[in-house]
Design a protein around this nucleic acid. Structure first.
Lengths: 355, 355
DNA sequence: TTGTAGGCGTTATCAA
DNA sequence: TTGATAACGCCTACAA
């Protein structure tokens, strides 16, 4: 059905190898035949068969990308960042969704290997302590770069979660908040663990007392987790005067709960999330957040993987992308004191003119 | 390097063809050897080489997906919907980003064909009037399903954009708005054209006058487009009393502009977008919108493509997924009249308890 | 500068 | 029930 190299060769009364050589722009082919070949290819609509080519060159120019949830804006943006590097380099992406399911992830990895991918980018849904999985990954025949979620002693690119937790918490401290609570993610996800660690380190650094009940573990990925956690926190006495939520969805749920409780932000309570969601600035109270630099994560991960593929250097290496604080109304109490009324300050700050 | 069928065969003192047959669970292989084979495969860590297999079976179990922007929540969610159908069916997704670039899209399609994909899902960045492209697509050797953006007489799955425009506009009319403007997307994108058409049809159906200057073409995909358009609209006299924005980002920008101008929603001006963005309900004024049913679009598109692949029926067919109105504060003027103060109504409506 | 032959890892056909 | 052999479409020596 499809046109093969052979067909092009026959059409031109040439041998297959000549046509092949011509298409690879090899030096030992006359310009005249090269042009003839290119024209015939165009005319006949020939597309090389990557399967046959990959079989013999042992290179497919396909990379595997495994993420837990394609629709989460974090992964969507990281994926785009990856593609923006790999696509110009001639690589294609076999993208897979694990639904946070470790077993599924295992199957997917096998499938990718069957497909002879040249490398793998993986945001793993496995428990970081799963030793079997770690050895499996370590023994992989193709280069692997972990993204977003770390595994000890493995090549990794992601946000610097401890710095995220530290910066967010210190920011709240600097805004004058002194009873800072944390809505944390599950212990099985390294990002959540890192952010919690950074939070604790910041409390220590600022001399604040660490209250264990001020740390509430939540759903991490949806608003209801933050909402429930905030309601619990508001029940404490003394109640926290600020909250560092480990994710923007959590922060949004928390914001909701705080507003329902009649609290004003940032006066009565401060709030900061993580993720710099595109619409955080348009919320009822514009949300402070920590930007993980998603596209940078994608770029770095892709570049690192490509260099592993090309140079075959397998020495484990980690790249922690430094976060950026994005201060908006929800935690900006210092700004509030100056000259303006709270209302105006909020309006000004959260709703800057768009141009 | 990698283990091949041959290695497994040697290990078991069997022939390659026997092992192959055993792995395919063919009937003419004794249960005993089948078990031996499966165990050896497990033990040696054999993974079949999809390239070699695909070369001979002419089937790769890989589908190509081409979208204009991976990071847009619409495509991310559609993609997830697609994967949720194709993955259980054993297919993998080669995902590509065109950056809305038609030339790039052409190259990507060729690359996918080179990779011998079994089918293609395409949200095309080409101008719908590009006849060359249309014939190219029509002549494709593999099944193709267009998603989101239509092309005449081609198999398509997407939102019913005309219904979206109609329903949104009629909703505004029913809320008592009579000077309804439209922030439209570019004429080169079929979704924008459809929504505009639906808007016009609704004006006619409700007997409202269609003012051409009430239709402003904007960026479509970002907030600034909506912001600028709204500022223009607010300069008109009489100024519109409601706006149907063709996208949620546009609506968010428009909301921003309206609030800056000191207008109250829904009293002074009504607003509705399209997309049902996850955070639309948490905005300063909870945003009414039209839900396109993204995952349904993904599911239908994937199912249709699979059926085309399996049954080889190439008769063009369109599936228009019906939209759902999602009414929130920004357009809910009727609700406002009843019993509650505007403020309370807003609070109640936009910020329903989360559980 | 061009052509011939062998092989990549798998499946399919047919003979044993 | 198993095994030998020929493809699949391409690339890469090496020969002409």
């Amino acid at each position: 059905m499809a046109i093969r190299l052979k067909d092009v060769a026959q059409h031109l009364q040439l041998s297959v190898s000549t046509v092949s050589a011509a298409l690879q722009n090899r030096e030992d082919i006359s310009e005249a035949t090269r042009i003839r070949v290119v024209e015939a290819v165009e005319q006949l609509g020939y597309h090389p068969n990557s399967l046959a080519r990959g079989l013999i060159t042992r290179k497919t120019f396909v990379l595997g990308v495994i993420v837990p949830d394609l629709s989460r804006s974090f992964f969507a943006e990281v994926l785009k960042g990856i593609d923006s590097i790999t696509s110009p380099a001639g690589y294609n992406l076999l993208v897979c969704n694990t639904e946070e399911n470790a077993k599924r992830e295992k199957e997917i990895l096998n499938m990718l290997l069957s497909n002879q991918v040249d490398g793998v980018l993986l945001a793993s849904a496995h428990d970081p302590n799963d030793a079997d999985w770690r050895t499996r990954l370590a023994r992989l025949a193709v280069p692997l770069v972990l993204i977003d979620r770390r595994l000890a002693a493995m090549t990794f690119v992601g946000g610097d979660d401890e710095a995220i937790g530290f910066e967010a918490t210190r920011h709240l401290f600097e805004q004058g908040y002194r009873r800072i609570a944390h809505i944390a993610g599950p212990k099985t996800i390294s990002t959540a663990v890192g952010r919690l660690k950074g939070y604790r380190r910041a409390l220590k650094a600022t001399g604040l007392k660490a209250r264990e009940d001020y740390v509430i573990e939540s759903n991490y990925h949806d608003e209801s987790g933050g909402y429930d956690a905030m309601r619990k926190l508001l029940g404490f006495s003394p109640r926290p005067d600020a909250v560092f939520a480990a994710s923007d969805p959590n922060a949004i749920g928390a914001l909701q709960a705080a507003l329902e409780a009649g609290l004003r932000l940032p006066q009565d309570i401060g709030l900061i999330g993580v993720g710099n969601h595109r619409y955080g600035r348009y919320l009822r109270v514009p949300l402070s957040t920590v930007d993980q630099q998603r596209s940078t994560i994608g770029h770095s991960a892709a570049n690192l993987l490509l260099s592993l593929i090309e140079k075959e250097q397998f020495r484990p290496r980690s790249i922690l992308v430094p976060p950026k604080l994005v201060i908006r109304d929800s935690s900006n109490r210092a700004e509030l004191g100056r000259s303006r009324t709270p209302r105006t300050a909020a309006a000004q700050n959260g709703n800057r003119r768009m141009r």
